[in-house]
Nucleic acid binder design. Structure first.
Lengths: 264, 264
DNA sequence: CGGCAAATTGACACATCTCAAAGCCTGTGG
DNA sequence: CCACAGGCTTTGAGATGTGTCAATTTGCCG
């Protein structure tokens, strides 16, 4: 694979090759998502850190993986939120996945070559890229670690199925409530759940694209949760009054997130 | 792993252990889904056939993988259609995936241990089961084959994302049209697309659970496609008048199915 | 304080659901 | 060969849910 000689691609490569080395705690969230499913030896942690990561930052709203790109490296999200976005020809968008720190955002690109969707930064993000070549080598030398990566893909599949259920069979307020529960459960895995509340950094327009409804109706759904007393406003963000109530309302069962540590 | 001594589990095991040997062409569809993505050596084909498959049949409407089961083997679909079904506590169902011959239905269970959904036979099915132990061994001895299995999971993820887009942003008639296009494209991969038409063996009630709408509205959506002239009735089933028109109407782009042969 | 993005609201049109009744097809028994 | 039962499809009518448009309010930041 040769480096393109000119044109926009050359620029892209330059951008991709910059980036600073990774500090140890940059991988904290990633290690947490892995160890939530299986034990990691100290050696394996070192192997992870020793990968040729290239740290980089990305500003809100930038589309750092574009639909149809043929990628040569995969991106790990270190800090911030981003979302998978699918488009239709008529321009409407649907958020098909939400990623938080510790998510290996486009591991699928390693397998699929060309991605079926874009990845957009919802907040400013810190990311780290590794080359597919390095991953390929890892797959040979570290079968256990590699198996865990595959499990992450399988888990994302389970999350996708839950979203399909949410879209197909839950009313917007229930869907929204379920989303809040899921996000909080996933934040808990990486040790970032705040008991007092939750901060969804999503605009109501973005939430609408996630819930598959209009902005106005998103607003009304939020209002409904507020009126039922499940969430309260607190300054700019919201607070969940009682997580048990919200779980019950949303019919939330975290089993699909596969959070249990077992040798696999 | 010992065989349970009594109770329903004993019965289940008995059922699972029966089953006859696999004939060569039973794997035709599976080999086709693999070779649509990468070349397979003759040796690899032999390895696949040599796996300790146990052939079995399953009748329509039976739920042959149940939500929460902890499985010790994975199921390949040889003949017939089945669907992944997710439930909510209130009993409503959502079909979160559709499987046709050649699909490795619960490969995910190998990674997840306990499944987040059920698998239901939509028609009478012929299946083949392999033990997770055999798969584990394969993963060590046949890295290339194994990588292809992982790719199948990643592709299913892409299909899930398309379904999320369909549910969130396509109107029921467009969603239905898209489904028909997808099914036909997937049947083509295994060499079973009929130029003259299509036969969705799904009841309108099942289609409703897939489209996330009511039965009545499913019927009206079908009618609408009929009135636009995209499909015609022919006896009990339907015929697509013009696939190009249907693709255009559904905004169908098969890229997400990842049908191209490349070394991976 | 002014400006801007985001959130909120009201009014009305359109989409979808529910309930209930008919119609249609197919296999079965007389 | 006909009548019938049962499962599926189709239709109508009224109740709800959701979208669109357009205006207003809120909160943040310089």
């Amino acid at each position: 694979m040769s480096i393109p000689k000119s044109g926009p691609l050359a620029f892209v490569s330059l951008v991709r090759l910059k980036g600073t080395a990774l500090k140890h705690d940059n991988l904290q969230a990633f290690v947490a998502t892995l160890t939530a499913r299986d034990q990691l030896s100290d050696r394996e942690r070192d192997v992870l850190l020793a990968l040729p990561w290239r740290r980089d930052t990305v500003t809100r709203h930038s589309e750092f993986v574009e639909l149809g790109d043929t990628l040569s490296d995969s991106t790990l999200l270190i800090e911030g939120w981003c979302g998978r976005v699918s488009f239709m020809r008529n321009g409407s968008r649907q958020i098909t996945g939400l990623n938080i720190p510790g998510d290996f955002v486009d591991l699928p690109s390693f397998f699929l070559r060309t991605l079926d969707h874009s990845v957009v930064a919802i907040t400013d993000c810190t990311i780290a890229r590794v080359s597919h070549d390095a991953l390929r080598q890892l797959s040979v030398e570290e079968p256990h670690l590699w198996r865990l990566f595959t499990i992450l893909i399988a888990i994302e599949g389970a999350v996708h199925r839950m979203w399909i259920l949410n879209l197909g069979r839950r009313s917007p307020p229930h869907h929204l409530a379920h989303l809040i529960c899921e996000v909080r459960a996933r934040l808990a895995i990486i040790g970032r759940d705040l008991e007092e509340g939750f901060a969804l950094p999503l605009t109501q327009a973005e939430l609408a694209d996630l819930l598959g409804i209009s902005i106005v109706h998103t607003n009304r759904s939020m209002k409904q949760l507020r009126e039922i007393g499940l969430i309260r406003r607190q300054g700019a963000s919201y607070v969940v009054s009682n997580w048990d109530d919200l779980h019950a309302y949303a019919d939330f069962d975290p089993t699909y997130l596969n959070v249990f540590r077992a040798p696999r």
